[in-house]
């Protein structure tokens, strides 16, 4: 391990410890992480925060405020990966968090409704997550801070047919 890498490692370790001690306080009973069932995918806990730096804590609060108010989900039109205006505050808050905290990471989970083929929907879910990622990166965020996975139509938020269910399922979840 080079000296530089060692320093980076030690800093991340500190951040991780910070996260562990602060994150529970900051987000009591946060349903966002409970929603996420992909428990075997390694999302480093430490990536959730850089709470040791004042600015970071503030940004974190901002994203959490937006999520607390309107949720962590970006919704889409049928067969479309275009971002609606209503989703911009959430995406911008995510971008702000990441640019203020270069060690922080977010995971973007893309989904589709049940209409159309499973394979095409898998691609569509990824395209939706990529669109969200691209807007975040336009704010100067490194692509390394964003992890993308698509589940296509395989993990619906709501079971059932009809536009009401379908709209809930055409989405990208921003997961910390």
């Amino acid at each position: 391990m080079t000296k530089q890498a060692l320093i980076v490692f030690l800093i991340s370790l500190l951040l991780t410890l910070g996260a562990c001690s602060t994150s529970t306080k900051q987000m009591p009973g946060d349903v966002i992480s409970d929603d996420y069932e992909g428990g075997d995918v390694s999302i480093e806990d430490g990536a959730q925060t850089s709470g040791l730096e004042g600015e970071g804590g503030l940004s974190m609060g901002t994203l959490n405020d937006v999520i607390a108010q309107s949720g962590n989900v970006v919704y889409f039109d049928y067969n479309s990966a275009e971002i609606r205006d209503e989703s911009m505050p959430l995406i911008m808050a995510a971008a702000e968090l990441l640019s203020a905290n270069p060690a922080a990471q977010l995971r973007l989970e893309g989904h589709a409704d049940e209409r159309g083929t499973r394979e095409f929907n898998l691609a569509l879910g990824e395209q939706r997550a990529q669109t969200v990622r691209d807007i975040i990166m336009l704010q100067g965020v490194s692509g390394n801070q964003l992890d993308i996975v698509s589940y296509g139509e395989e993990k619906p938020a709501v079971v059932g047919s009809g536009e009401e269910s379908w709209q809930q399922n055409r989405r990208v979840e921003i997961i910390q």
């Binding site: 992909g38 075997d40 995918v41 996975v149 698509s150």
Partner: peptide, 11 residues
């Protein structure tokens, strides 16, 4: 049989 599995979290 070839198939796609999400067992690792990704396809």
């Amino acid at each position: 049989l070839a198939y796609v599995s999400f067992e690792s979290g990704n396809s």
